[in-house]
Design a protein around this nucleic acid. Sequence first.
RNA 1: GGAGAGGUGGCAGAGUGGUCGAAUGCGCUGGAUUGCUAAUCCAGUGAACCUGCUUUCGGGUUCCGAGGGUUCAAAUCCCUCCCUCUCCGCCA
Length: 425
Amino acid sequence: MLDIKFVREHPDAVREACRRKKIEADVDGLLQLDQRVRELKTVFDEKKAEQNRASKSIGKLSPEERPAALQGVKTLSEAVKDLEAQKKEAEAALRPLLLQVPNIPADDVPDGDTDEDNVELRKVGEPPTFDFEIKDHVELGRSLDIIDIERATRIAGSRTYFLKNEGALLELAVLRFALDHMVAKGFSPMLVPNLVRRVAMEGTAYLPGGEEQAYRTVKDEDWLIGTAEVPLTSYRMGDILEASELPVKMVGWSNCYRREAGTYGKDTRGLYRIHQFQKVEQVVLCRADADESLRWHQEILANSEEVLQALGQPYRVVNVCTGDLGRPQIQKFDIETWMPGRRGYGETPSASRFHDFQSRRLDLRYRSETDNRPQFCHTLNNTVIASPRVLIPILENGQQKDGSVVIPEALRPYMRGQEVIEPKQ
RNA sequence: GGAGAGGUGGCAGAGUGGUCGAAUGCGCUGGAUUGCUAAUCCAGUGAACCUGCUUUCGGGUUCCGAGGGUUCAAAUCCCUCCCUCUCCGCCA
């Protein structure tokens, strides 16, 4: 959610943002309503002040003097009530309009319609070449006896899986490796609620709008998180932080649940697009300073790149274009890892910065040391690693002619030193 | 699941129709004192919004969980909802 003052003062920037992001928002209607709200407020304030003065003086009157004075104030009070109703109605209509308004994309976000227009910033690592016919992760998972999708489907439906044997250990290894990497960088490790109230979903801007994408419990209205970003960013909701507490650097580990509605027939094979996975996620809360925000954006992006590099995975970084950017983001960098089975790069981590778009909804503020007024924090987040999706490149890139898979060195300490996963049959 | 208690400023915690944006304590800021630190003393210290010949100065409105009601007047009375806690039961 943007500051209404900002919209008022920079309507053209807001219209430009709508145009670039291809998001509809009634900016003119919003501005007209804002004007009306302020006019009503001025009139209401004046009348109410008059009433307050009159009321106050009644308290000081003697019992004999009161009845006469009461008559006059009563009509005044009725007029005030009427004005208040009008004002409230206008204010209530304002919020939904404001919620439609997208955040302003950064200048260096490329224009475009879909992810095909995302701009590649850099490639790191060379996709491996194979002198044999490669298997994809589904085939490898079966021959190594580490992934079972068929049986999962029987008991849990589409887009589900079992990880077993080294598959289970490999997932825990990669997650733990990612977590340790972030803890070494000063991020606080957090195990978070996976089931949250509506406020947290709304505060992080997943609701309203994302109802179809999230699971909800039937008896209580609780939501299964699609990412640890939800509880982590909401963690200090409603607080006024001391400036000395910033930046808040957190790394959370959670299960993530996504309905993947509207994706029927898309990415149906294997572990790419599934209903449940585990993710290590980094979240930063920092001062309301665009430059500082940008520096953190680069840093959290680098953190995730370091993890992929340590795992020896070839990847590229793309600057996500306006049409593929969500409403809340200023800018987003996706990291795409080479997946031989797809003969291309597949999305893995995704680093976003929001400025105060989320914190305004969450009422997440800090008291700056310069001027003493509370200000909204800036929020950022990035995936460190999401599994089992990351197992796809690890298995596919690491496969050998004999059907075995080499475990990245960085993970071996978490696998009791195991170097290779051998085929079972 | 059964019974009860409660939601007040950065925090703790008074306040049960007007003198309450709200006592007191802690914290914080400034000052005094002080070999240093601590302690002590004095002063200040909520937020949002509107507005004033945008002047580190003023005026106003709103906010005591949320929403509604009673009243000239509500933190205080009534209703609805949300949330938290305690005890009992059940249980990983």
